[in-house]
């Protein structure tokens, strides 16, 4: 069943992405001021939306673990955070490429960029911490605390473009009262969010299976040691 869901999601996400790419690259006109490079927004924004909401989702699963002490929540939190970190890296990289063309520099130390980089470092530390603790319950507890503390920073980063004047553009999406884009230009962002979200669900499912195998191997090893 799991295999079928994964294949189904992959086919759907692949088809959606291909159709959306066609719209982005062949149908949409260049932006008036930025030219062709503005199209990076169709990857930068979805990647960061998924990264940021993934860190939040990881926090919810971490709370779920602390409340129930069920290790499946911990595995979910770890998988979601890992996938989110990949998306956050894509967001940082695409943002940097865009900045090089538009601002003339790869990086600017404004509040948005800095806080997002801090988040990336914190959740990178989260994954390193998981490798440093051997005992599964202890690992889950420590990781949950770091995930919850780190999510405070993710929220600061999310709000930073509203709280401070940043070099990073202010909100452009209509859900954040940005309204800076024409409807036809904004829609492909959301289609990409959907397609990439399907891919992240696939990645999380694969990662969850690895986690359950790892737990099984760990149990067998303990049993072998006990005898």
């Amino acid at each position: 069943m799991r295999e079928k869901i994964i294949i189904g999601l992959a086919v759907f996400a692949g088809a959606l992405l291909a159709w959306n790419m066609n719209t982005i690259f062949t149908k949409l006109p260049d932006e008036l001021n930025q030219g062709a490079i503005y199209r990076i927004i169709y990857f930068h924004v979805p990647a960061n939306i998924l990264g940021m909401s993934g860190f939040g989702l990881g926090m919810l699963f971490s709370i779920g673990y602390l409340v129930t002490k069920d290790l499946r929540y911990d595995a979910l939190a770890a998988s979601v955070t890992e996938v989110s970190l990949v998306f956050a890296s894509i967001g940082l990289a695409t943002g940097s490429i865009w900045a090089r063309i538009i601002w003339g520099v790869w990086w600017a130390w404004d509040y948005r960029l800095t806080s997002w980089l801090v988040c990336w470092l914190i959740f990178g530390g989260y994954l390193m911490l998981r490798r440093a603790v051997d005992e599964p319950n202890q690992r889950a507890r420590f990781a949950a605390v770091v995930s919850i503390l780190g999510s405070v920073n993710a929220y600061i980063s999310y709000k930073s473009i509203e709280w401070w004047t940043t070099q990073h553009p202010q909100p452009v999406l209509s859900i954040r009262n940005g309204g800076g884009m024409a409807a036809g230009m904004e829609a492909p962002i959301w289609w990409n969010v959907l397609a990439l979200a399907c891919f992240s669900i696939i990645l999380v499912m694969v990662r969850m299976r690895q986690e359950s195998f790892a737990r099984e191997i760990d149990t067998l090893r303990r049993m072998a040691h006990a005898q």
Binding site: S115, V118, I122, G125, M128, A132, Q138, F142, N153, I156
Partner: peptide, 26 residues
Amino acid sequence: LFSALTVNLRLRELMLPTLVYPMMIP
């Protein structure tokens, strides 16, 4: 808090700065 969290880890000296400094940046 992180001193308490890392106290029993085998990589304590490495993990503490990795976790603490990013948290301190804001």
